[in-house]
Simulated assay, not measured.
Amino acid sequence: MTEFTNRGVQTSEAVVLEAFPPPNAVRRPSRAMHPWLSFAIRRGASLIVTFLALVVVSFLIVQLIPGDPAFAIAGANADLADVERVRQELGLDLPLGQQFMTYIGQVLSGDLGTSFIYRQPVSTVILSRLPFTATIAVAGIVTVLLIAVPLGMMVGLLTRSGKRSWLDTGFGVITGFLDSIPGYIVATFLVILFALGIGIFPMLPPAYSTRMVAESFVLPVAALVIGPICTVSRVVRRETAVVLENDYMRTARGWRLPASKQYVKWALPNLLTTTLTLSGLIFSGMIGGAIVIESVFALPGLGTGIIKAILDRDYPVIQGMVIVIGMIAAAINLLVDVVLGLIDSRNLGGSHANA
Rank of each mutant, 00 (worst) to 15 (best):
W36T: 09
S38E: 13
S30E: 14
L54S: 00
V56C: 07
V56R: 04
T50I: 08
T50E: 00
W36M: 09
P35G: 03
R42N: 10
L37F: 14
T50Q: 01
R43I: 05
R27I: 11
M33P: 01
I41Y: 12
R31N: 09
R28I: 15
R27Q: 11
H34T: 00
T50R: 00
R27C: 04
A40H: 08
P35I: 03
A40Q: 07
W36E: 03
P29D: 14
L47E: 09
L52Q: 11
A32Q: 11
P35D: 05
P35C: 07
S46E: 11
A53C: 10
V49H: 05
R43N: 12
G44F: 04
R42D: 02
S30V: 15
A45F: 15
T50D: 01
L52V: 14
F51E: 01
A40Y: 07
V56W: 08
S46A: 15
R28K: 14
F39G: 01
V55G: 02
W36Q: 06
F51D: 00
H34P: 03
R31D: 04
I48Q: 09
G44H: 07
I41K: 12
F39T: 03
R42Y: 02
L52P: 02
I48H: 05
S30Y: 13
S46D: 02
R31M: 11
L47D: 06
P35W: 01
R27L: 13
R28E: 13
S38R: 06
P35V: 06
F39Y: 14
F39M: 10
R42C: 02
S38Q: 09
F51C: 06
P35K: 02
A32G: 15
P29F: 09
V56S: 08
R28S: 11
P29V: 09
S46K: 06
M33N: 02
S46M: 13
F39N: 02
G44V: 05
H34D: 03
H34K: 02
I41V: 15
L54V: 04
V49C: 05
L52I: 11
I41F: 14
V49T: 08
I48N: 05
H34Q: 04
V57T: 11
V55M: 13
V49R: 08
A53T: 12
H34M: 03
P35F: 03
P35S: 06
I41A: 14
I48T: 11
W36I: 14
F51S: 00
M33F: 05
P29H: 06
R28C: 03
I41M: 15
L52Y: 09
V55L: 14
